[in-house]
Design a protein around this nucleic acid. Sequence first.
DNA 1: GGAATAGTGTCTTTTAGACATTATGTA
DNA 2: TACATAATGTCTAAAAGACACTATTCC
Lengths: 244, 244
Amino acid sequence: MTDEKEFLDNYDMSKFPNVALTVDITLFTVKDGKLSVLLVKRGGHPFKNKWALPGGFVNVDESLDEAVLRELKEETTININPSYIEQLKTYAYPDRDPRGYIASVAYVALTPVTESPVGKDDAIEAMFFPVEKVLKLDKDLAFDHLQIIKDGLERVRAKIEYAPIAPSFLKDQMFTMSELREVYEIIWGEELIPSNFRRKVLSIPNFLIETGDYRVSNIYGGRKSELFRLGEVEEFYPPFKRPE
Amino acid sequence: MTDEKEFLDNYDMSKFPNVALTVDITLFTVKDGKLSVLLVKRGGHPFKNKWALPGGFVNVDESLDEAVLRELKEETTININPSYIEQLKTYAYPDRDPRGYIASVAYVALTPVTESPVGKDDAIEAMFFPVEKVLKLDKDLAFDHLQIIKDGLERVRAKIEYAPIAPSFLKDQMFTMSELREVYEIIWGEELIPSNFRRKVLSIPNFLIETGDYRVSNIYGGRKSELFRLGEVEEFYPPFKRPE
DNA sequence: GGAATAGTGTCTTTTAGACATTATGTA
DNA sequence: TACATAATGTCTAAAAGACACTATTCC
């Protein structure tokens, strides 16, 4: 189709309004019994010295998914390789960025907490903050990142009902029923009755696989607990609804 | 902060890689008992004369939501004002568009079927196609729009379980239980037992409001049916799960 | 009356909530 | 033995599936 070839050869991308594309990540972890989110302190303008979500500009030789993982590595010293990641939502409207029309594709990612992350590159500092504190701190976040965090939080709370993402918060491949339940309790902010929790999650096909291994739980006594690992389920049916 | 002001005054957006931002809409309706999606035939390159989702470039003086509604009006003669709309997902990776790095923010929208839409502007034709046909037609869709339609379809099928979007397919504000059930049956492709359906949806607080009005349903006889209207519920708890 | 559709009732099975009981481990 | 945690069992309540039955409304 020579017609189309000619069209493309003469096509001038610069005729379009100048927009830029960025990715931002809400990376959640459970730290000290609290759901926490990674923030970096901005080293450059705009919002210099304010806390913000890690993120940055998308290159034209990479996909959005690739850009997210690259930015996460660039802005923190530790090589955070999130155990779960998915796209959340795209934020674009006039004046969301003083530099111009800059769209942000936000992601949600989960990771077990390991060492303390340290800022690098554009980020002069990096830290996990308890979500409840961030929601109160309010004014000191850059851009519309507070809204993004709220949306990301709701996504995690909802998704844990029907997708096997809770183990993504746990350090080890093998985990006890109590550790799994604790994740749910922290994400939902509600206590769950252990026996009912156990019955429910064990009834979900291919969610938890018994390993036959056990772990001693507490130095003050208590029965040793069985270790499970994640099965290959993709979606729970029916879901495990949170208490009302 | 004079430092920041100086930074912004000298900021050059054109230093960024040339990307463009578009929106694309999967507008679903129920037509002749089938879930259908609006496609337009492209009048210009690339993919000239191929069917594609309606959409276009985002202007820098508008939000994504505004851009979607504008494009829908521009590309079809009838003023389609979708009764429901939400953002789906953003698609961006090298080579998804031969013109350059062009990101697409996809939306899902629902509308009752009214008159036949007609193409306008860049679209030389516009039509609702049954989704099952589109999924088979396969090769003739522009860009990655087949994938977007698949993702949009799954969003609708899932969302109808826990959000009051089914009435968005219905022409009148007031509707019968059968009309509502038919929407669910078409979206899920499954027959539902009428009595159980009725019990379930009526048990959802603030979903359906009795109007006290009735409508005669069939010329060959049959009891007249009560008309309901949509209540102000935002999310069903517990959800109305589709059959397995 | 007979066909067609709407709406109610009922029986059974499944799932969820609450909590008692048993099992097993340490100081 | 006292205490702590894990695992099982049991009773009840709520919800879902299957389907019979009643109520209208047309020809």
